[in-house]
């Protein structure tokens, strides 16, 4: 069983977000890390591998990322958690790619890897579009089981629960397939000390666009269908309003507030 888990290297969400003059994210000035939502994808991949145990033959989890040199940190984190090897697609021409172009590069990289299951997070914590898993399944011509909050594998059948606002649906797909998992799928593990030490020795390959046979003109800012036109700093947090309940009027004040903000 070969699992490819696609992860993204993103700016630390707890830091200040900055943008370049072309409105792409400034990756130089901030600390980057493995997107928190992708940690769930890594976790589910590892759990599937563990559940298969020795019955699944030699199961292997490969971490795949696209990004600048620093993106290897995201791979490293996934390897520390327990993934087996990494592939880093690194090419200056990719910078500024939108979801469409990103999914092209990911798909071509996945095609070069043995894959029974391709696992993604539900969205990135920076771009937050959440469309790459669906695009990836389309480009690979594989069934896409997206937004799974609980994941089961029964032989060659993948079964997920997808929680919607009004209903919960169960989706089944036959392998090979593309899966995306939500932040409800189960807390991601912390790398153990041994995992941290072992990751140092795990193999990471670096591929260029040429290695994938992708033309540079198909990707990057120029080739992207979507463009960020404007960015704005988040307004500073305001003080908020504290409702005090000294004479029994608190509940009404709270409801009035919620109504005034159209929450209820």
């Amino acid at each position: 069983m070969n699992i490819v888990v696609c992860v993204k290297y993103v700016p630390d969400a707890t830091g200040d977000r900055k943008f370049e003059s072309d409105n792409t994210v400034d990756r130089e000035g901030v600390d980057g890390l493995l997107s928190e939502l992708d940690e769930y994808a890594v976790e589910q991949s590892l759990q599937l591998k563990e559940k298969l145990g020795s019955d699944g033959g030699d199961s292997e989890v490969t971490v795949l990322t696209i990004g600048p040199a620093g993106a290897v940190d995201a791979i490293r984190k996934a390897l520390q958690m327990g993934a087996d090897k990494g592939v880093h697609v690194q090419d200056d021409a990719i910078a500024g790619s939108d979801a469409f172009a990103t999914s092209l590069v990911l798909a071509e990289a996945v095609k070069k890897l043995p894959h029974d299951l391709v696992v993604c997070g539900m969205a990135s914590t920076d771009g937050g579009m959440g469309v790459v898993p669906a695009m990836l399944s389309e480009r690979l011509g594989l069934p896409g089981a997206t937004l799974g909050s609980s994941i089961e594998l029964d032989g060659q059948t993948l079964k997920i629960r997808r929680d919607g606002d009004t209903a919960t649906v169960t989706v089944e797909a036959t392998l090979p397939a593309v899966l995306s998992v939500t932040d409800q799928s189960g807390e991601a593990r912390y790398p153990s000390f041994k995992g941290i030490m072992a990751a140092k020795k795990k193999p990471v390959e670096t591929w260029s666009l040429a290695d994938l046979g992708v033309d540079a003109g198909q990707v990057g800012l120029e080739a992207s269908y979507t463009a960020v036109e404007e960015t704005q700093a988040r307004p500073p947090r305001t003080a908020g309003e504290i409702v005090k309940d000294e004479d029994g009027s608190g509940a009404k004040a709270l409801v009035d507030f919620l109504v005034s903000k159209k929450f209820v």
Partner: peptide, 22 residues
Amino acid sequence: KHGYLGVSIPEEYGGGGGGIGD
């Protein structure tokens, strides 16, 4: 549970095989 308490204990005795620095 994550092996952080036993980082400096030798691996053959269930630790992480690291050092006091860890």
